[in-house]
Write a protein that binds this DNA or RNA. Structure first.
Lengths: 365, 365
DNA sequence: CAATTTTTGGCAACCGGTTGACAAAATCTT
DNA sequence: AAGATTTTGTCAACCGGTTGCCAAAAATTG
């Protein structure tokens, strides 16, 4: 009847609280497969000759204990190579130093910049980023969100597909920030599409285009609607005809599939919901013998990684995605630190990035 | 002197343990800003008329309680919309249902696929992925790793930059899996470069090339060394001359910068450490008037997103990055469930993806 | 139907920090 | 120097689950 913790690593057996042991080494050797587990505040307290609560205060409430005691405790902590146990801390306080990010689709490079932006600013403030994806499904999204809410201090939803109402419900529990969508009562970071779109449409009009097609994104996408509205408005202003086409999915493949419809529409310029659609569309049109931009101009959205690898390089309305991620993280962190920033929506600028895929129409239509 | 928890949301005030209250609603209304916080096993126990420990067993130890009690408890849990508190569970057990992933650079699309692969398989097994980056710095990496070790059940290091010794030290604490590098005694997932490289070199030789340049990656990169060795061996076998060039950083920009050296080297075919370098290099060479592949062939590594957007599309040695992420996650999860899989290194195949950037040499050199 | 074995549920300790209340010690007043 | 005030450290309860141990209940056996 050995009492060793080999078979049941999580048992509470063995560790008698015996005051006779030496105090220079952390008492605990219990967790896991017998490795040195990290020291606790109790170990520090014993070594420093103070009460554990004093240790706790010294380590987290600056100024609450005298400089002298502070020093003794810090030295002891250092000597024992102490690291707080995040769970033990999270249990009473609820704080976890963690923020969650849910993206619609990890496959989509649009989100990589957002992830990067959020991760970088979170890390800079000593927060850890937890990532999940919804696979474009509102149900998966809400499940992931609910699961995360338990473990994070705040949540960022990038291009959420769930209902406004659900988002508000989540936001009533813990701080939530939304990217690429505007939800009443919830802090949002939204690229203001108007500037970029009007630049794009004006450029198309100046190059002699009369008929513009907009290739839409997923129906649940708030941003797709906004972009379509923007395109309509700008086209009206520039006296162009605008028609809306649907896509099956907002990917390169979806772009290829919509090429037929684009041809049939008679448009000489196409603005797509995102760059992936634009790239797929361009590939398919070129494969069919069309010359871009001589016969048809293509404009994407977002300026994702790789948008300038194509031939011709893609003209696109750039959204500062990395900035969106970063701003959303900041919004959240401010909320968490109690210094509520400007309540409403943060708008970031979009701009036209004029490259080779749009230009003057050389062939009369 | 109101005792309301408004100003000090984390206080323990107020909640007297009064047995007279109605039992149909979770007693707790304390956490946060006064919203309904989730029910605890104590609430369930009260509602079901059993002991909290019985609830705990019913919910996590299948078969430990009778079917009847099980049902009563499950119903009560459902009614109260119970969710386990992950911290409370993690505190005594150490289990967190979380795995960490540290990548060298979130900016680098190579890691996108790895992240996706890991996230997807983790999520499928009900684990959450926690992400951090090391910004290509060994110091940042070890800091991030140490921080993470406290909060995750296992860790994946993708292209780690730290010493073998440090990796083994980490691995002695909790399960660790490594991607893109082989470390003795630690489970690794490594693309086997030989097949892809020999295909690539054979193809170059068949197209009349005699001099090959390899553009190396970061000096700490284990994989860069492996690739250079592979290129050397394959070139020797095919009787080609191989020379190694250094790059400043493994990015598109780094590729542009190395163009000069490539020209000077007299090589007619270039194999680069990764696709980013290849793309940058190709852009710069083309900007300087070189024709690809007529005057120079370019072969990258990894087949990242966008590698086929270029003109000509990039020939590259594909590593199944998504599979690497997924396999590493599986390795870890198996380890966590105690069913240690095959101890050693998992090798995944690489293959040449022949596209337009490599081909027959048209101009005598 | 009694004796024995197996199930099942309850008790209480425990994980490792945090914090309100309070008393002891130190500092400041007058 | 005695009293008032402030600083500092201790006590104990608490967050919400988990689990070893034990006794009561149920099932099995003779």
């Amino acid at each position: 009847m050995a009492t060793g913790p080999l078979l049941l690593p999580n048992g509470y057996d063995g560790t008698v609280t015996d005051a006779t042991e030496s105090a220079t080494v952390p008492a605990s050797t219990k967790r896991g497969r017998g490795e040195k587990s990290s020291a606790t505040i109790y170990d520090i307290a014993k070594l420093a000759g103070v009460n554990p609560s004093t240790v706790s205060r010294a380590l987290s409430k600056p100024g609450r204990v005298s400089a002298k005691t502070q020093k003794i405790i810090e030295d002891a902590a250092e000597q024992l190579n102490y690291q707080v146990n995040p769970f033990a801390r999270a249990l009473p306080t609820g704080r976890t130093q963690t923020i969650g990010l849910i993206v619609a689709d990890i496959t989509n490079p649009t989100f990589f910049d957002i992830i990067r932006g959020a991760e970088t600013t979170a890390a800079a403030r000593d927060y850890t980023l937890v990532l999940a994806e919804s696979a474009e499904s509102p149900e998966t999204e809400i499940t992931a969100a609910r699961r995360m809410m338990g473990t994070v201090d705040g949540l960022i939803l990038a291009s959420p597909r769930m209902d406004d109402e659900l988002i508000r419900e989540l936001a009533s529990g813990k701080p939530v920030a939304v990217i690429n969508r505007e939800v009443d009562g919830v802090p949002c970071v939204v690229p203001d599409v108007n500037k970029g779109i009007s630049e794009a449409v004006r450029s198309l009009a100046a190059n002699g285009h009369k008929n513009v097609a907009y290739v839409a994104g997923p129906p649940q996408s708030w941003m797709s609607v906004r972009r379509w509205e923007g395109v309509q408005a700008a086209c009206e202003w520039s006296k162009l005809k605008a028609v809306r086409l649907e896509s099956s999915k907002p990917t390169v493949d979806g772009g290829r599939q919509v090429a037929r419809d684009v041809m049939d529409s008679g448009a000489t310029a196409v603005i797509t919901y995102n760059d992936l659609l634009a790239i797929g569309l361009m590939q398919e049109l070129q494969a069919g013998g069309m010359r871009v931009p001589d016969q048809i101009s293509i404009v994407g959205f977002d300026d994702i990684f790789g948008a300038d690898f194509t031939t011709p390089p893609l003209t696109t309305v750039r959204s500062p995605l990395g900035e969106c991620g970063s701003r959303a993280a900041l919004l959240l962190l401010d909320l968490l630190l109690g210094q509520a920033g400007p309540e409403g929506t943060v708008r970031v600028e979009t701009e036209l990035v004029l490259r080779g895929s749009s230009g003057r129409l050389l062939v009369a239509n």
